[in-house]
């Protein structure tokens, strides 16, 4: 099980365009991907409704996890969507 703990740097948090980019990247990954706040139940990262339902704001920390071949590459890509500024 690979996971990344990352601070959300996008202005809109995990909403609007950053949320859409995040879910698009998760949907491309061949394995299950989950996302959530540290110490809380994670949700399916491929579900835009569950992801925006987390209501993660700018500056909050999230944990993204995935398992299997290519998990690390997929996670790196997901991290980039919430840390790339101007997104």
């Amino acid at each position: 099980m690979a996971e990344r703990r990352v601070t959300v740097q996008t202005e809109a948090g995990l909403h609007a365009r950053p949320a859409a980019l995040f879910v698009q990247a998760a949907t491309k990954a061949p394995m299950d991907v989950s996302v959530g706040r540290p110490d809380a139940d994670p949700v399916n990262a491929k579900s835009i409704l569950l992801v925006i339902g987390l209501d993660v704001r700018h500056g909050e920390e999230i944990v993204i996890s995935a398992e299997g071949d290519g998990a690390d590459a997929a996670l790196d890509e997901l991290v980039a969507t919430v840390t790339a500024n101007g997104a």
Binding site: R17, A20, V23, N44, K46, S47, I48
Partner: peptide, 15 residues
């Protein structure tokens, strides 16, 4: 962008 985000909601696996 707005309509693409709406399309993603219609395709939401949780839904």
């Amino acid at each position: 962008d707005v309509l693409a985000a709406q399309a993603m909601m219609a395709r939401d696996p949780g839904l």
